[in-house]
């Protein structure tokens, strides 16, 4: 306002104030974003990458993928994982280390996700479960492998269990029962699939749009061959389109696996 005259400043100021008032007036009638938590726990959707609690997915044969190597225990900066193993002798006389208990102390965990990244088998992962409050600190110490579970055999790859399993965990895995009440199992899986589909579709759209943009940029670059900036932009757009296309393809692949 410094270099404007008195009246220009006044009028400009009033105009901008009116714009602000208009924005808030519109905002007054928009749908509200507040989550009314205890009532909406059924339909509340938590993003799947949310790090709620550590789980060990089991398949329908009560098999997990943990081989008891203890890398997660070694990697954990907070010392919140304890892997208890024992040596057994298999039928063909070989000695084999199997997992007895995978003890996870959620009270110590800082949700850094180093353990899941370090796991060579992909046996543990974070589930988007958020109702973690308990009355006793001891209730936070959980055994992740289900009672009577065993490691999945090598020959048959343990793929089918992966997505649906995390949600299947809670009720059985908590021996002391203090963990959150069972969250709906099937809907979560369905949701996941639906979301994945939506994401795949979006990715494809993005890819198509990027491709179109790239073609346009290319045309523009051809029209003016001496313009280096346009050419660079076209190349960039092409690269972006290719990248987006791969992303979309990845999504499709994942969807097919589900």
């Amino acid at each position: 306002m410094a270099n404007k005259t008195y009246f220009a400043g006044l009028v400009g100021g009033i105009k901008s104030l009116c714009t602000g008032l208009g924005v808030t007036f519109r905002e007054l009638w928009t749908p509200k974003v507040t989550e009314r938590y205890p009532e909406n726990r059924k339909e509340n959707i938590i993003p799947e990458r949310f790090r709620g609690t550590l789980v060990m997915p089991h398949n329908e044969n009560n098999e997990h993928k943990c081989i008891g190597c203890g890398i997660c225990q070694m990697q954990c900066p907070n010392d919140s994982i304890e892997v208890v193993t024992e040596m057994v002798e298999t039928e063909d006389g070989k000695k084999k280390k199997i997992l007895k208990q995978h003890i996870y102390d959620q009270g110590k965990c800082m949700y850094c996700m180093i353990c899941t990244r370090a796991c060579p088998q992909g046996a543990i992962e974070f589930a988007p479960e958020y109702e973690c409050a308990v009355f006793d600190r001891q209730a936070l110490v959980k055994t992740l492998n289900q009672p009577g579970s065993k490691c999945a055999e090598k020959p048959k790859p343990a793929k089918p269990a992966a997505p649906a399993a995390p949600a299947a965990k809670p009720a059985a895995a908590e021996p002391n029962g203090a963990a959150p009440a069972a969250t709906p199992v099937a809907p979560a899986a369905d949701d996941k699939k639906a979301k994945m589909e939506a994401a795949a579709k979006k990715a494809e759209e993005n890819a198509a749009a990027a491709k179109a943009a790239a073609e346009e940029a290319l045309k523009a670059a051809e029209a003016a061959p001496e313009d280096a900036a346009l050419k660079a932009a076209a190349e960039e757009a092409q690269a972006k389109a290719a990248k987006l296309a791969t992303v979309a393809a990845n999504f499709q692949k994942k969807l097919a696996e589900m």
């Binding site: 808030t24 905002e27 007054l28 928009t30 509200k32 507040t34 009314r36």
Partner: peptide, 11 residues
């Protein structure tokens, strides 16, 4: 104030 800020306010 809650409504302007897209919230529900005390409920």
């Amino acid at each position: 104030c809650a409504f302007v800020q897209c919230r529900l306010g005390p409920d």
